[in-house]
Structures are given as structure tokens and as C-alpha cells.
């Protein structure tokens, strides 16, 4: 059991101050922006909740919000099962295990704009292996002009980029299962599926919730990779929420609406993450 000791605050204080400095001041500023019409440094007017009304009824934002949910949903549906499957296939010991770990970590360590660049090149029909091969096989593929192709490319890129994270997390969860469980299963002659369903999956629950939470938050905020790959096109087909927001804030310099919208954005992520977090800690308690 943990001991009740409020002096522990002294140990947490540096973290609190450091994060508060970078988090609270900008957050307050965004709230301030969201209720004003700002022309320049000294000319600004209080407009109340007008910006909120405007962004909540803006169809362009509804569209990109919908796209964002579809995208995050697809990402979770593909990456979580695939990550589990890969984790189950990973070797458990020896030199191969380290090697596989290292190879799998590579995509995670590439700067996000380089990830975009890699796939931008790889998917092109003239100089990229994937685009060229697909076209040689008779499949008309062009991520820059076809909506479906653009979506598939962005999704494949995200799977390439992030499935390893899910797999590594699940791998660590699997390693935590004591051998006794497997021995018991062997004695019972349980099938591989039964072992997975009744031993591995329950033990993976808490790690999976971390993975789902991280993947949801990050895919919901995705910006750099699709920006480099497709620039949001063709049309607005792959313009996700972050990009719409950045266009508003920096492209059109509509600070007020952008700020109001970003708070709505933050609230959505906050609610979903809180639900995940509550489920996760609740799960810990009952265990």
C-alpha cells in the first residue's frame, strides 16, 4: 500500500512548474484569443461566444472532423489487431529478439516530415517503387489525383509508421506473463486460439489501453505526414483537423476562430482520453 504523505509534492514540484509554464500560459492565451476579434497587437474587440458559434456551425470543420474520426477509427482498427499479431510472432529470446526490436523501432525514430518524404517518393509512379510497381501491374494508382489512392497511401504510411509502437507495447505485455500460465495451458492441451483468448488477451488489456490511447491521441492530431505527402489533397480529401486549424490560424490569420476551434478540438480529445483513462485505471482497481 502507498503511504499518505503530502510532502511528496516537493518531489513533484519541478515537473509541475516546468509543465505548467509551457502548458498553462499558452492555454490561457488561446482562451483569450477565442473571445476576441484581433486585428493587430493593439486593436482587438471582445466578441463573446461569436467565434464558437461560427466554428460549431462551419460545414468545412464538420467535414474535416468527420474525416478525422474516420481516419482515427481506421488507424485503430488496422494497427491494434496487426500490432497484436506481430507481437505474438516476435521471437522471445536470443540475438534475433534484439535485432527484431531494433528493426521495428526504426520507423518510430524517423522525423515525421521525413516519413512523409519517404512515402511521397515511394508512391510516385515515376521514381517510386510502389507507385511504379502498381502501375506496371495495370492498377492506375496516383495518390496526388485520386481520392481513394490518397487515403490508402496516408493509411499505409500511418500503419508503416506506428504499428511497431503497438507491437512493442504488446510484446512487453506478453513478456510479463509468467511461464506457469503457458505450462498449465499445455497440460490442458489448449489450442493456440484458447491460449490467446483466455491467457494472453486478458493480460494485454492494460497495455492495450495505453496503446489505444496513444494511437488515438496521435492519429487525431496528425499533421506533418499527410501535409508533406498529399498537402491535404486532392481537393480537401486528406485535410485532417490539425491542418484545417493551421490553415485558419497561420494561413488566414483568423486567430479568434482558430483559437475557439482549437479549444473545441482539445475538449474532444480530453473527453475521449478521459474515458480511456478511466477505463484503464478502473481496470487496474478491479484486478
Amino acid at each position: 500500500m502507498k503511504v499518505q504523505n503530502n510532502k511528496a509534492w516537493w518531489l513533484v514540484l519541478p515537473v509541475f512548474l516546468l509543465v505548467a509554464f509551457s502548458a498553462i500560459v499558452p492555454m490561457m492565451t488561446v482562451v483569450n484569443y477565442s473571445v476576441q476579434d484581433i486585428f493587430d497587437h493593439s486593436t482587438r474587440y471582445f466578441v463573446g461566444v461569436d467565434w464558437y458559434k461560427q466554428v460549431l456551425q462551419d460545414t468545412r470543420l464538420h467535414d474535416s472532423l468527420l474525416r478525422q474520426f474516420i481516419f482515427s477509427g481506421c488507424v485503430l482498427l488496422i494497427e491494434i489487431p496487426l500490432g497484436i499479431a506481430i507481437a505474438l510472432c516476435m521471437p522471445t529470446k536470443g540475438r534475433m529478439a534484439s535485432l527484431v526490436l531494433i528493426v521495428m523501432a526504426i520507423p518510430l525514430l524517423i522525423p515525421w516530415n521525413v516519413v512523409g518524404t519517404i512515402w511521397q517518393i515511394f508512391g510516385r509512379a515515376d521514381i517510386g517503387l510502389m507507385g511504379w510497381t502498381l502501375n506496371e501491374l495495370g492498377i492506375a494508382y496516383n495518390y496526388a489525383s485520386d481520392t481513394g489512392d490518397a487515403w490508402v497511401t496516408v493509411l499505409i504510411m500511418d500503419v508503416w509508421h506506428w504499428t511497431s509502437l503497438v507491437a512493442l507495447l504488446c510484446y512487453s505485455g506478453l513478456r510479463a506473463i509468467p511461464d506457469v500460465y503457458y505450462q498449465a495451458a499445455r497440460i490442458d492441451r489448449a489450442s493456440a486460439w484458447a491460449v490467446f483468448r483466455h491467457i494472453q488477451l486478458p493480460k494485454l488489456k492494460s497495455v492495450l489501453l495505453i496503446a489505444v490511447m496513444l494511437r488515438f491521441m496521435d492519429s487525431f492530431m496528425i499533421y506533418t505526414e499527410p501535409f508533406v505527402l498529399t498537402g491535404g489533397g486532392p481537393g480537401n480529401a486528406t485535410t485532417f483537423l490539425s491542418q484545417t486549424l493551421t490553415q485558419m490560424a497561420i494561413g488566414q490569420f483568423d486567430l479568434g476562430p482558430a483559437a475557439a476551434f482549437s479549444l473545441v478540438y482539445f475538449l474532444i480529445i480530453l473527453l475521449v482520453s478521459w474515458l480511456f483513462y478511466t477505463a484503464m485505471t478502473h481496470n487496474d482497481k478491479t484486478r
Binding site: M28, V31, Q36, R44
Partner: peptide, 12 residues
Amino acid sequence: WMAWTLPTALFF
């Protein structure tokens, strides 16, 4: 630069 207004100050 934080562009404070009275209502937001009261809110915080």
C-alpha cells in the same frame, strides 16, 4: 501579448 480581457480573467 496574452491579450487578456476582463471576462476571461474572471473565468480563470
